Simulated scan of single mutants.
Amino acid sequence: MTATADLAIRMARATFNRALAEADLNAIGPLLAMNVVMVTGTDSAVISGRKAQLMAWKREFAAKERMIYTRTPETIEASPVEPIAMEHGHWRGVVAGVTQASGRYSAKWREVGGAWVIEAEIYLTLA
């Protein structure tokens, strides 16, 4: 399961990154669990639930000079006893080609019906 989970989660993360770059809410929705929780990096705001997160991304996408976020996984560890995995990596936010913020993140994934979805993410802003 580990190699399969690793590849599937990396592909899902690439899809999420592409959706953020293209402001594609329809592509983001299926990657999020219904009860997904995100803790943002700078102010530790808690965004709880798929609907709330999609609304937050919709606001981000409407910004005149919007930041494009990219998450780059470094490690993915799948549980040998449950259909869950942890992803750790670094993120950055870019406006007009210039990095405005960056840091580290962790994401918990769960396999549901053969697809990996994000259950929780926490971000740390370092720059």
Rank of each mutant, 00 (worst) to 15 (best):
L7N: 01
E121D: 07
S106F: 07
T72L: 10
E77T: 14
P80H: 11
A33S: 08
I68R: 04
K58R: 12
A56Y: 12
S102G: 09
R10D: 00
N35I: 09
F16G: 01
R104Q: 09
L124R: 13
W109H: 07
E87A: 06
L25C: 02
P80Y: 07
E121K: 10
V37C: 04
L126K: 13
T99A: 15
K108H: 02
A115V: 10
R18H: 03
G89H: 12
R104F: 10
V117F: 07
S48K: 15
E77D: 09
E65A: 15
K51D: 08
L126W: 03
R92T: 08
R18D: 04
R92W: 14
R18V: 01
A14W: 01
I47G: 06
Y69G: 14
I76P: 13
F16C: 01
L20H: 04
V81S: 12
K58H: 10
G89S: 08
G89M: 09
L124Q: 07
A120H: 11
N17M: 05
H88W: 11
A115M: 14
T42R: 13
M86S: 07
K108C: 02
N26H: 08
A62E: 07
A101S: 14
N26A: 09
Y69W: 15
I84G: 07
V112K: 09
M1K: 14
R104Y: 07
H90K: 13
I76V: 12
V95K: 14
A101E: 11
A52D: 08
A107S: 13
G97K: 05
G41V: 03
V112D: 05
W109C: 06
W57K: 12
M11G: 04
R59W: 08
I76T: 08
G49R: 12
M11N: 08
K51R: 15
A5E: 00
N17Y: 03
W109R: 07
E22I: 01
A3C: 01
T70R: 14
V98F: 12
V39S: 02
N17F: 04
R66A: 10
A27I: 00
E74D: 07
E82R: 14
M34Q: 09
G49D: 03
A120W: 09
L32H: 05
I118N: 09
M55K: 14
R92D: 07
G41S: 06
V98C: 10
R104K: 15
Y105F: 15
A12S: 13
P30R: 06
L31G: 00
M1L: 09
M1G: 11
P80C: 11
E119S: 05
S102A: 15
T2C: 01
V81G: 04
E65C: 14
V81K: 10
E77R: 15
A21R: 05
A56W: 13
A62Y: 05
A52I: 12
G113D: 06
E65I: 15
W57S: 10
I118L: 13
A63L: 09
